[in-house]
Design a protein around this nucleic acid. Structure first.
Lengths: 237, 237
DNA sequence: CCATGAATAATTGTATACAATTATACGAAA
DNA sequence: TTTCGTATAATTGTATACAATTATTCATGG
């Protein structure tokens, strides 16, 4: 499938341009629908249009910008509904990853997971939001690695980018971190005990809980720009 | 996320190069690890290196080729395990799509679905493999459209490319088409009756059955080139 | 014969030049 | 004033030129 490691190539000009624009978008330094001009970006980074254009093509495929032929490249926003869909999809895929991790996790990965949770419990008690966010990311990364599927791993990483993007816009209110760590612990214990069904289910639920918490804490305020089209009606679950 | 419609741009040189190489790869006209030279491809299509390079960058992100900096672009193969993982992931996502379709399918889409199944039953009885394959694709497309999620739709389409790729290598032995149509019918009826859980479950099972059928009919002969690394052990389900 | 390494060729990476398309400015007519 | 159309500028699309890197050839020495 896709992404990331193949692209990196951090030491070519194109790679640097790609990473730079990508970061800027994910960090919210552009607004939705901002136009990216090849020359302007090239001058800013001291390169010609060629590597910029190539970077654009990749960013387009990744969905971070959209290119209209002969017109320009525009930063693409994601809607409230997109965010919801991503979380629902992630719920399923994280469940699958946790299930597969049961059979494939290494002792070292298991160890890191336990340590991760131990540290999380500490920081959750003190509201160290940066450390908590970092540990949270890492917990999921461990599962991605442990599931032993390059396909699934790549897919989940790709979605994770979007999560980071959203997280930057929604404040991380307290309360969640403790509960989140508890959920991580449940997933970990299910994996450790070899219970595939339980691992899958707890991971499913964890992602959905994270989503619901985000909604409560103002997702809709952070992303007011939903499209009108058919409305947001795939929701009853 | 990704893919396809944004890329198309069929009337630019880059778009034509992209589509051409893409088709060639998916149609199996290249072997695994074949090297793609910018100049050679450019001359073949009568264009310069610039649009070829841009097309390469997109194909790389799509996973169809892999670019090694300063060396070249190589057609990437997928392994037996990759195929399996894709089907397992698809099982979950098709289930989700069917679930969402319950709440979002339009009368027109429902009608097309019923017609699709009616025709499939006819052709399945006569072993019209081409028509059956076409109808099968279309059945899934309808669900993708009906789920009303651009995110999920794009994702499933991307995976579908891989399925087509595999299908071209594995012979479609008889027997399956009748059973497949029956399964489509079950999905359709679940959607029609508004039973979300059933729709999800029947779609889940359908994809897994398709996979198991493929294994029986020689997937492992068609894709002998699995990597050795950690072996294929995430399998007990 | 094989191994080594320098010279050469081939190929990719980047910059620039030119063509095609789209956006903008501005004046004339209603 | 507003609207329309043309001229101009700005921007993207493509081709080509040059630089940097990698592959190949082939002579030399062991």
């Amino acid at each position: 499938m896709s992404i990331k490691d193949e692209v990196s190539d951090k030491y070519s000009l194109r790679g640097r341009v790609y990473n730079r624009i990508r970061e800027d978008i994910l960090d919210g330094r552009y607004n939705n629908n901002d136009e990216l001009k090849e020359i302007a970006i090239g001058e800013e980074l001291g390169v010609s249009r060629t590597p910029v254009r190539e970077a654009f093509r990749q960013l387009e495929l990744e969905g971070l910008i959209s290119i209209i032929p002969n017109k320009g490249a525009y930063v693409t926003g994601i809607t409230v509904k997109d965010v919801k869909d991503i979380y629902m999809i992630r719920s399923k895929l994280e469940g699958l990853a946790a299930r597969w991790a049961v059979d494939n996790i290494t002792p070292e990965q298991m160890e890191e997971m336990e340590e991760n949770i131990y540290l999380s419990e500490f920081h959750a008690g003190k509201n160290h939001t940066d450390q908590i966010a970092e540990l949270d990311n890492r917990f999921h990364e461990i599962i991605y690695e442990a599931c032993n599927s390059k396909m699934l791993e790549n897919q989940l990483r790709e979605y994770h980018e979007y999560v980071l993007r959203v997280r930057r816009k929604t404040l991380s209110k307290s309360g969640r971190s403790t509960k989140s760590t508890e959920e991580h612990k449940m997933i970990m214990e299910a994996i450790k005990s070899g219970d595939r069904d339980l691992a899958e289910k707890t991971a499913n639920d964890h992602v959905i809980n994270a989503y619901e918490n985000m909604v409560k804490n103002g997702l809709y305020e952070a992303y007011p720009s939903d499209e009108k089209r058919n409305g947001d009606k795939n929701g009853q679950d």
